[in-house]
Design a protein around this nucleic acid. Structure first.
Lengths: 318, 318
DNA sequence: CTCAACAGTTTAGCTCAGCTTCACAGTCAG
DNA sequence: CTGACTGTGAAGCTGAGCTAAACTGTTGAG
């Protein structure tokens, strides 16, 4: 009978593209992988790998086998999930990834609550951008990804993964604080708005804009918001780190759009305003569907939902 | 991760009801099975077996796990089937079971044709009654079962198995040959029919009947046919073996209903007649659905279909 | 072109998972 | 009570699957 371990090695080669990478992922040597694949080829009775330069490429038969291996691995994972849900206590190690802002603002309270509720559960955290999270999830390096999404409509499944939005995070326009005398401070064509009051984006057509890089989601949202309000923004700088953007705005160098989570709890001096039209990003958990019913996952999703329900954006409007 | 081998041992215990039987089925010692189950319990984190007298009984958790094990095993089998269908030649060992008449009349030509068409294919045959065949198939002791069925409508699936009728075998009334002077010879109230011509069952209300045991399908069919023709047959003897029934009929001791396959090629001297109303049994192949596409199975089913299409019942009417 | 870096393979040898054997404990029928 | 039977535990063996290290073939930099 086909060895399941060998099938998983083949699966890993398919995912990661080389024997070396697969070996690293499985914490064994390339030699071991190579040997196992010789055996698997004998078991399968078909050639599975062919040389391609100094690397290997999967044959069609191997690709077929990988799909079966996915099914088999999924079935085993489903059995384990079912089994874990019969345990009295939630236990095991939950590997979570989150984009940096969530890792800073969402995960600490969620992890604390989880540990309190389930003392036998260990939670580890990596910070990864949304796209990295998804590939890590597919590589089975993490169990749960927290991603931000700016596009509508919400994905509910993609690449065999299951998405579930658990909160919306409104986006705000940050203006220089009263008295900041920087060169961008007065650029808004409108009268200075009452702090906390909604502002029309189109009122800032003449302002300098501080924003995330253009290839980022938030950068694109900002651009799109300006353009749909009828103008092309004067971009003063592109910074990935939200705290840098805040610092620039506070120094009076321009205005910028920031998500609510980024301006929680940081004694932000910039003047924060909901936008008109209102903008928001969606924050979702992503899991592998076969783990849907695993108690670790169920508990974590419940805790995230709880966080989402409790989340009070800086100025409401979430 | 849950060990697949251990899961299969658990599965076998569930199927066969004891550690000893499971061990025999897997060709290892009971001790090995016992040890593996200790490990599986540790992996699962749940108790799987509980003592019941000097045997063991599966817990609910174990039963759940067995269902998962079935899924996993099925997925592996499906992968193997898919893989085998990529081979150039049909190869492997096909384990067939058939009820005795089919084993005698159907399988020899079918096995010969299969071996000729696929020299690398080995076929083994066991003769088992239909019910035994089905349990053997579920126990994975055979790959293909040939069963006879007398009830309408045809089963297409049952107990996770897949049925496929490949021929109908008409049932005939066998009368003593001309000149047989036994005590049942003249019991028919009708004029002696032209050999080979259809006869009404009701014409033999006064005959002695030689039939299979009453708990057999054919015995029940015979009884039902008589009763629905309006009489209770005088039963002279119940014999399981068709050749004994034929001998008794030829000796003039009574009349009997026999399937076409049983009276092929045997120099039967009894006078054979289609019945009015006509009777037939269905002959079907049964497989495990996950092997549906395995080339061994595909070839064998094709060969059986070919046999069914060619099959000329002794007097037509099939 | 040459050489170093790199991916994969091969061989030799080690380790431990999983087996057998054997002894033993609990259960049940005669 | 005794003997047959099922399952468990301890001791020890075998081989599947690993590592280490030497080797082959490919690629890209200088």
């Amino acid at each position: 009978m086909l060895g399941v371990w060998r099938l998983q090695l083949l699966r890993e080669i398919s995912r990661r593209g080389s024997i070396k990478a697969a070996a690293e992922a499985m914490s064994i040597t390339p030699s071991a992988v190579s040997q196992q694949l010789v055996i698997l080829e004998r078991e399968a009775g078909v050639q599975l790998l062919e040389k391609s330069g100094r690397r290997v490429r999967l044959t069609d038969a191997a690709a077929l086998l990988v799909r079966h291996a996915d099914t088999i691995t999924g079935a085993i994972a489903a059995a384990e999930a079912d089994l874990a849900s019969m345990q009295e206590f939630v236990t095991g190690t939950l590997r979570v990834s989150a984009f940096p802002t969530a890792a800073r603002a969402v995960l600490p309270p969620v992890m604390t609550a989880l540990s309190r509720r389930h003392p036998a559960l260990r939670v580890t955290l990596r910070d990864l951008e949304a796209a990295e999270s998804l590939t890590a999830l597919q590589m089975d390096e993490i169990d749960l990804a927290i991603v931000d999404e700016y596009d509508e409509p919400a994905r509910v499944s993609d690449g065999g993964l299951e998405f579930c939005e658990f909160m919306r995070d409104p986006l705000y326009l940050a203006l220089p604080p009263e008295g900041a005398g920087g060169p961008g401070a007065a650029a808004g064509s409108a009268a200075r708005p009452v702090p906390g009051e909604a502002v029309r984006i189109s009122d800032f057509r003449d302002a300098f804009w501080i924003m995330d890089t253009e290839d980022s989601h938030l950068g694109q949202i900002t651009l799109r918001a300006c353009r749909s309000s009828g103008f092309e923004p004067h971009i003063r700088s592109n910074c990935k780190d939200f705290s840098v953007i805040i610092a620039l705005v506070e120094a009076g160098l321009g205005v910028g759009i920031l998500p609510g989570l980024a301006i929680l709890d940081r004694g932000v001096r910039a003047s924060i305003h909901p936008t008109d039209p209102p903008l928001a990003r969606r924050i979702a958990s992503v899991i592998r569907p076969e783990r849907r019913s695993h108690p670790m996952i169920v508990s974590a999703l419940a805790e995230l939902d709880r966080f989402g329900a409790k989340y009070a954006p800086p100025l409401g409007g979430g």
